[in-house]
Amino acid sequence: MSSQNEPRATSDGVAGSPETADLTWLAHRAAEALGAAFNRVSREAGLADLRDWLVLALVSDGTQRTQLEIANQLGIDKTTLVSLLDRLVRNGLVVRTFSEKDRRVRIPAATPAGIEVVGKVAIARDAAINERLAAIPPADRAIFHSVLWSIVEADSAQA
């Protein structure tokens, strides 16, 4: 008789529990683990969470984007993005200007303080990710990153 925690063969011949054999479950759990580490780093820098940093990093890259373009690029609902931007503006990390092409459109950009936070969080994020992935050899990390990017690109091509 086998125990519930004992590895079992799956339909594709790979040994493992039902959870570890399910790619969707694994991807979700890995994203949760990395997201939790990144949320901690973001909060330590005074941000609400990783979404604040994603928005701040995007608006600090020197490319002018409308709020709608930012929402689409990050996969954030535009109403949620407005709340995030409002908080970043209140904290002095972002300013909004009007588009020269359409005065109804706002263009967010990082302030010098926002750019400084992006740099600090990026360093802390890399350290947190390296800590989380310490058991994975660097060559395997590169493959892992490449495979994840392939999945993202395939999704973008279908959209």
Rank of each mutant, 00 (worst) to 15 (best):
A9T: 00
A9W: 03
T10E: 09
T10V: 04
T10Q: 10
T10P: 03
T10F: 07
S11P: 15
S11I: 15
S11L: 15
D12I: 08
G13R: 13
G13D: 12
G13E: 14
V14F: 15
V14I: 15
V14T: 15
V14W: 13
A15S: 14
A15H: 13
G16S: 08
G16F: 08
G16Q: 06
G16W: 05
G16A: 09
S17T: 12
S17K: 06
S17Q: 08
S17I: 11
P18T: 15
P18Q: 15
P18D: 15
E19H: 09
E19Q: 14
E19N: 10
T20E: 00
A21F: 02
A21D: 03
A21V: 05
A21G: 13
A21W: 00
A21I: 04
A21K: 03
D22G: 01
D22K: 01
L23I: 03
L23F: 03
T24Y: 10
T24R: 09
T24G: 05
W25E: 07
W25M: 06
W25P: 05
L26R: 06
L26G: 01
L26E: 00
A27P: 01
A27S: 07
A27D: 06
H28R: 14
H28W: 13
H28A: 13
R29F: 06
R29K: 08
R29N: 04
R29V: 05
R29G: 00
R29E: 03
A30W: 02
A31Q: 11
A31V: 05
A31E: 10
A31G: 08
A31Y: 07
E32D: 10
E32M: 11
E32Y: 09
E32K: 09
E32I: 07
A33R: 01
A33K: 00
A33N: 05
A33E: 11
A33D: 11
A33Q: 05
L34I: 02
G35L: 05
G35D: 07
G35Q: 05
G35N: 08
A36Y: 12
A36L: 14
A37F: 08
A37D: 09
A37E: 12
F38Q: 14
F38W: 10
N39W: 12
N39C: 12
R40S: 07
R40P: 02
V41L: 07
V41M: 10
V41E: 13
V41Y: 06
V41H: 07
V41G: 09
S42H: 06
S42K: 07
R43K: 14
R43S: 12
E44H: 06
A45Q: 02
A45D: 00
G46C: 03
L47H: 01
L47M: 02
A48L: 05
A48K: 12
D49Q: 06
D49T: 02
D49C: 04
L50C: 00
